[in-house]
């Protein structure tokens, strides 16, 4: 699809990414090297003597000049090396990798659910602006948007897992059974439902608001009136002409929603005992395992930058005027 987008726009947009990525990397380097605390001491562990600390210092390359450390750091990053976990003595990429799939499953589900439900309710609300359905949807979305996800998670557990035993209260799989194949997938889905819904809820509210605002704005445009004038029923004029244009802002916020979703997931995961990045973050925070936390900072930053880039490309593909500007 990129070939269909204005080439100069693609190049310009890609060039903009370079300083941002450099900024992120420099910031993360600074976070490790310019803050209090001695990484060598932490790496050597408690009760290490001076010789061991010195050995750790030279192992980590901390006895080299700072510019050299920075180039080494960059070189390692380019090779996908995020350093070694202090607590678990294994590569950070492995520590994160183990937990990543569970978080991807959770956030991915929430992203899809919130987008589909958000656009659906947004369209419903915009059909008759300021009538009861619109008011109900708009009020509900503002209310839901204001509820902290990790509290909502507890309310959901109390109501749907502990009172009526509709869903399991936590975990990713049933510990008492060893399911295989389809049954295992169903088991995971059953555990996934509640955390994914909770995580999706406030995002849904955001999408509802953006969809509704976009549709109301588009509905007043002349091309919709023309479509109506040539005899198209209102529903079709909206669905075929107004909706695609109204969805552009929904697409634009996807990039930023990825960031929100991941940090929301950290909290929701710890309420539900979901074995994802949130669990790894809490463990790392408790153990003072800075390379792991820093690795996650880099990973999430990179995801956000990529998502924003992809979003901009998609927008320029859908609406070429954006690239021509």
């Amino acid at each position: 699809m990129l070939w269909a987008v204005n080439r100069r726009y693609v190049v310009r947009r890609l060039l903009q990414v370079v300083p941002t990525v450099l900024g992120i990397v420099t910031l993360s380097f600074a976070l490790v090297h310019l803050t209090p605390g001695d990484p060598a001491r932490e790496f050597a562990g408690e009760g290490a003597d001076q010789a061991q600390i010195d050995a750790a210092r030279s192992y980590l390359g901390l006895d080299r000049p700072v510019p050299e450390q920075f180039t080494t750091y960059l070189r390692h990053l380019l090779h996908g090396d995020l350093g070694t976990s202090y607590a678990q003595r294994m590569p950070v990429t492995e520590v994160i990798g183990i937990r990543l799939s569970a978080t991807l499953l959770l956030t991915g589900t929430a992203l899809v659910v919130s987008t589909v439900a958000g656009v659906g309710f947004g369209v419903l609300a915009a059909r008759r602006p300021l009538r009861w359905l619109d008011n109900a949807v708009s009020t509900a979305s503002l209310l839901v948007y204001s509820l902290p996800a990790f509290w909502l998670a507890q309310l959901a557990i109390m109501a749907l897992a502990l009172k009526v035993h509709l869903f399991p209260a936590g975990g990713m799989t049933d510990a008492r059974e060893a399911y295989t194949g389809l049954a295992a997938a169903r088991d995971i889905a059953h555990h996934l439902a509640l955390p994914a819904l909770v995580l999706a809820l406030s995002e849904t509210a955001l999408v509802v608001r953006v969809t509704r605002a976009g549709l109301l704005q588009q509905a007043g445009q002349e091309y919709v009136r023309s479509a109506r004038a040539k005899g198209l029923p209102q529903e079709q004029a909206v669905a075929r002409h107004a909706l695609p244009n109204a969805l552009l802002p929904v697409l634009t916020i996807v990039g930023s929603r990825v960031g929100y979703l991941v940090s929301g997931a950290v909290l929701v995961e710890s309420v539900f005992g979901w074995p994802g990045l949130g669990k790894a973050l809490v463990d790392a925070a408790q153990a003072g395992d800075h390379p792991v936390i820093l690795g996650m900072v880099l990973l999430v930053s990179a995801t956000v930058v990529t998502a924003n880039l992809a979003t901009d490309m998609a927008c320029a593909w859908i609406d070429p005027r954006i690239a021509a500007r």
Partner: peptide
Amino acid sequence: SVPRFFVAVLV
């Protein structure tokens, strides 16, 4: 682009 939440954990 930097997730505030994670940086806060670090800091």
